[in-house]
Structure formats: structure tokens, C-alpha cells
Design a protein around this nucleic acid. Sequence first.
DNA 1: CCGCGAATTTAGACACTGTCTAACCCTCAC
DNA 2: GTGAGGGTTAGACAGTGTCTAAATTCGCGG
Lengths: 144, 144
Amino acid sequence: MESSQTLKPGMAKESIADLLRRHEINPTHQRVEIAQVLFERCEHLSADQIISHVNARFAETSKATVYNTLKLFLEKKLIRELIIDPNKVVYDPNTTPHHHFYDVATGRLTDIPADNIRIGTLPALPPGTVSDGVDIIIRTRPAA
Amino acid sequence: MESSQTLKPGMAKESIADLLRRHEINPTHQRVEIAQVLFERCEHLSADQIISHVNARFAETSKATVYNTLKLFLEKKLIRELIIDPNKVVYDPNTTPHHHFYDVATGRLTDIPADNIRIGTLPALPPGTVSDGVDIIIRTRPAA
DNA sequence: CCGCGAATTTAGACACTGTCTAACCCTCAC
DNA sequence: GTGAGGGTTAGACAGTGTCTAAATTCGCGG
């Protein structure tokens, strides 16, 4: 399958390689491919989808490499991991501090850009639905 | 292994059976055992722990039955499912509307009783830690 | 008490996601 | 060319949960 027309593959790969280098990641072939899949379409993709997308392009990449690379990207703060369900873990290329609103009824995942969280800033529930409660999962780390 | 002394097994089983009946659940032997494990110690237990605890009592209960029963309890709103990690799913016998505060750094899970959520009502972060963001997972359902 | 049909339970096979291992490959310095 | 080290790989493995088909139990009318 051909690469999409939206980005010039050559220059895109260059800047992605730079991005990796800026995060102290050795930009190998496979890593660039994986990063490109993640950043090109700015969606939240699962490991599974990433494997499919990468292998639909040029390179054959093994499952182990994709998992290794995602873990590396996580450590280097290039992406964030988002656990929606035990069988639905997705990766978020947006590393600016932000929050996520996930509605299990509709499957819709919304980004909340604020850092000033109040219930009033959340999107309204779809009409005719009620909430049993909100699970707030806060991901902390030692201050740098 | 003997049953604990804290509850009279007979009457406890009676009231638990009633609880199940009130939720339109046929109170079989195994279901009562599982419910008893969940409600006796009012902790958040994983499916794994529930299997161990049930089998440490009297009854031998198969893995499939425990999973079936937990799914049934969920449908009947007897318990809530709490996804902390892909490999850490626990069940909460407290069905009053409330929220959860989980700190991945400490592993501590706190109940937030309010229905008026504001960031100010959350426990303070441990000193020396910062947050990369908060994932708010809201579990909705059609209004009754 | 008997026996029937429906509901429930069961063991074990299966699927899925992610991890691990040990071998291989590629590059680069010398 | 050669050795060292990082990166990649296939496939085995582990944990969690689902499925299936058979066996058991239960409710209940006769």
C-alpha cells in the first residue's frame, strides 16, 4: 500500500528523526516508521493498530519491536499511554499536559486541554444519560 | 478452612441471599459464596483474589463461574468494576454513587464520596510529586 | 417421590495482549 | 576484515478472561 499524500515522506521522516533525536532516541528505520504512524494521523491508536499500520506501509516490523518502541517512547515522554479498558489501551501522541474524557456508552474520546479541572469544564453528558460516578485516575511521577 | 468468626454464617447467608433476590439474582450456592467474599471484607478485590478466597472456604468454584457471576452482578448493579491497569481490574461492592482516586505511584486507592467533583476535593499529591495529567473516565448509562 | 426442562456449573480448550529469550543483523571504529 | 554493541526478530511463554459442550442441580408439576 502506498504512503498517504498528506505528508512528503522524505521531509516528514527528517523532522520525525529530529524529534526522536531531541528526545534522546536513536532514530532507526523502524522507530521512525512507528513514530510516523503515531504523529501523522493524530489519533489515539492501539498497539494492534500500530502494528497493522506500520506493516501496511513499507517495512515489516515485528510485534516485539513495536512494543519495545512504544515502551521507549513512553519513557522518553514522547507519547502517553491511555487505559480505557483492559483490552483497549491506546497511545496518545499529544504530550502537552491534558486530560481525557471517555464515554463508555458512545466510545467517544475527548481531549480536555485545561489544567484547571472542574466538573463544569467537562462536555455535557448526552441527553438521556446519567453517570454512576467518575473514575479519576491521576498519573503522578517524582518531580523532576 | 473454617469460616471467619466475624459473621454468623447462617444469618449472613440469609441476608445475602435476600440481597441477591432483591436484585433479581437467583441465589445459588456459588453466587452467595462469591457475594459473601465481596461484601464481608469491604475491599476492592480482583477476580483472581475472589477465586482464591472462595476456594479457601468451603465450596470449590470454577473460574468460569466466578467470571460469569461477576458479570451478572455487574449487569444487576450489585457491584462496580474498576479498571486501574490492564492487568489490575478490581470489583467494588460499594454501589452508592462515588468516585475513585488512584495514585499509580503509591498504589493507594481512595474513595471520593462526593457527587460534586472539584479538583480541590481530591487528596493532595504526595510531596515531591507532580502530575502529567488526569484521566477522567466517566461511566454513563441511559437514564432509568 | 419421580422425572422433566431450564438454569447453572464445570473443566478445559481457546483467544488476546503483552513479555521474554536467544539468535541474528547491521553499523561503526579500528 | 573483525569485533563490539545496539537494535531487531520469531516464536515460545504468561496472565487474564471467554467459550463450549457436557454434567449437574434446581424448581416444580404430577
